[in-house]
Design a protein around this nucleic acid. Structure first.
Length: 561
RNA sequence: GCGCCCGUAGCGCAGCUGGAUAGCGCGUGUGACUCCGACUCACAAGGUCGCAGGUUCAAAUCCUGUCGGGCGUACCA
């Protein structure tokens, strides 16, 4: 709504500029890329344009003078503009009459659960790949953060009009799986023949879950694999345990309200030969060479500091090579215009070389976007808890969800930008106290529901926005609340552009605050029936927007608390 | 050494495609329900935007340097 108003204002200013140029009052070659913004200070009006300042240099004229010329050429009589002032360094400030803002309530009433959706993406295919935890054990706190960030980013993009695919990349091949196999095998033998029968691999997975897999495997197959060749034994153990682990990942993520469109198995890239092919393709393009028995990618040709190994001397493909194949698959074979990955910051060294490989394959590297997320530190009792999958002492996503609410966890992880260090205070999260802002937001929604319930008992219903005189909403708190409601689609846009779902979290907090302030200042249930009708429309609209914004974050909007 | 990220109020963070008096939450202090849910609201105190230069009509925002913290810099994933 307000976006429309801004465009209207811009159109008028552009006309005024053209007129001034025509009359010879102002000299310029082209209109600069100025902005219409909502000033922080209310005394400056509802909107402000900075066009005059940007033109000062070329026009060789004081910004204020230019602003005066623009204003003198503006034709706003009979429109919704109430006042225009030139202020400060040369801002043109506009004040609107009540008719514009109120339209947002009608719009919300019409669009309901779709209010906030925009067509910025125009159906473009975007993939968001996130979590992609190793299936060798349970998910940790970093996965919890990545899950909340990735899922909400995908939602934001969906609301912004993109065709979004959520994908989980299962690393079911390679070195980690080898370690997993060796660990399982050792535990299997130890279970049957005693702890000393075989040495546990030093770099293996020491977690209790490995023992549990071994025990359960024995429950099913007994010692029948003891005499089999190691390779066969390991394969059976891995096939068994991997399936259980992947199913567990799915279950845990669904509990966290994350549903993937695609679970992509790394192993398929090995089985269908695509991983090898990509090395061949790079070679055909003259981007590889052999050294010390390994095949190297000439990353230095693409601005990197050093080259990267694609095929190790032992003939195995590196993780890097497979990842190149995987991203080629995303961007070419499956036709995603953009592939966004959420990665832990410890992977950042990998970003530039993967982009370099995309460039080498003739793919615009900007189509691959990596959002780096600082790893979460878990704090309990004022002390940092080390997280390590291998010690078996880590706190898992599952633990987290048992100890706090899903709503709180998702909200918490989306309060900060991905790229900021984040201490997750478990004590606070477990407390479910009022310190947690999710309750503040949910309370606003429940409070509205309570008002509507109370009035419904007296047979007072919310009328359609069009049938009500909304211009009665003139109190400062009412106007502020309407402005907040009007902001929602723009928040979706900026969150999508910045790839930053935390903006929605912050917005929903602002909106809740705006409602609570309104509630403190204005009574909905009042003697003045016309005013009550108008306020009911405002309150119902607030409820809709709160619910919509929370749904972007997959957080519940409760009717009672 | 080199590269990336972060340094804004006591604490945790926004703001960073340059714009008018730098915001929010927690905490602290003082107030507000016989009245729509006080899980709330109002007011107040609290800042050399790490530091130093530079660009600009205008710098928390852009550039350079510097200090402090995190993370990378594997024929690991």
């Amino acid at each position: 709504m307000y976006e429309l108003t801004k465009n209207t204002l811009k159109g008028w200013i552009n006309e005024a500029l053209a007129a001034a140029k025509e009359k010879g009052e102002l000299a310029f070659s082209s209109i600069p890329d100025y902005v219409i913004e909502e000033p922080r200070e209310k005394e400056f009006g509802d909107f402000a344009a900075n066009a005059a300042m940007l033109m000062a240099k070329e026009a060789r004229m004081a910004p204020r003078k230019i602003a005066e010329i623009i204003v003198s050429n503006l034709k706003t009589e009979g429109t919704f503009i109430r006042e225009i002032h030139v202020a400060g360094a040369g801002f043109i400030n506009f004040r609107l009459d009540g008719s514009q803002l109120v339209k947002v309530l009608e719009m919300i009433d019409e669009q309901k659960e779709n209010y906030g959706r925009i067509d910025m993406g125009k159906g473009e295919k975007v993939m968001v790949e996130f979590v992609s935890a190793n299936p060798t054990g349970p998910m940790h706190m970093g996965n919890a953060r990545g899950g909340a960030l990735g899922d909400c980013l995908a939602s934001v993009l969906d609301w912004a009009g993109f065709d979004v695919c959520r994908e989980f990349y299962i690393n079911d091949a390679g070195n980690q799986i080898e370690k997993f196999a060796n660990s399982l095998e050792a535990r299997y033998i130890q279970e049957l023949k005693g702890e000393d029968a075989v040495e546990f691999p030093e770099d293996g997975y020491h977690g209790e879950d490995i023992r549990v897999h071994a025990k359960n495997f024995i429950g099913l197959y007994g010692d029948s694999y003891l005499d089999k060749p190691s390779e066969e034994r390991k394969k059976a153990l891995v096939d068994y345990a991997l399936k259980i682990n992947i199913d567990a990942l799915k279950t845990d993520l669904e509990k966290y309200r994350i549903y993937y469109d695609v679970w992509f198995h790394e192993s398929t890239l090995h089985e269908n030969g695509k991983a090898r092919e990509v090395v061949d393709e790079l070679t055909a393009r003259g981007c590889t060479y052999e050294k010390d028995g390994a095949v190297w990618f000439k990353a230095t040709d693409f601005g990197e500091e050093k080259d990267e190994v694609l095929v190790r001397a032992n003939g195995f493909l590196t993780y890097f090579a497979v990842d190149v194949a995987y991203h080629r698959n995303k961007l070419i074979d499956r036709g995603f215009q953009t592939a966004i990955n959420i990665w832990g910051a410890d992977h950042h060294g990998h970003v530039a070389r993967l982009k370099a490989a995309m460039a080498a394959l003739g793919i615009d590297p900007n189509r691959l976007e990596v959002i780096l997320m600082q790893l979460v530190r878990l704090v309990q009792g004022g002390e940092v808890v080390r997280m390590s999958k291998r010690t078996g002492k880590s706190i898992t996503l599952n633990d987290l969800l048992e100890e706090t609410s899903i709503d709180a966890a998702r909200f918490f992880f989306n309060m900060r930008q991905a790229n900021s260090h984040f201490d997750f205070d478990l004590d606070l999260a477990v407390e479910q106290s009022n310190d947690n802002p999710v309750f503040y937001v949910q309370y606003a929604h429940a409070r509205i529901c309570s008002i509507l319930r109370l009035l419904a008992q007296e047979n007072i219903a919310v009328k359609a926005a069009k049938e009500v005189d909304l211009t009665l909403l003139k109190e400062e708190q009412e106007v502020d609340l309407m402005k907040l409601l009007a902001r929602f689609p723009e928040e979706i846009r900026s969150a999508a552009i910045a790839r930053e779902p935390s903006r929605i979290t912050r917005y929903v907090m602002d909106l809740a605050a705006g409602f609570h302030t309104f509630y403190g200042a204005c009574r909905v249930k009042t003697e003045d029936m016309a005013l009550m009708d108008a306020r009911l429309v405002l309150v119902a609209a607030t409820k809709t927007v709160l619910k919509n914004a929370l749904s972007v974050l997959s957080i519940e909007a409760p009717e009672h608390m």
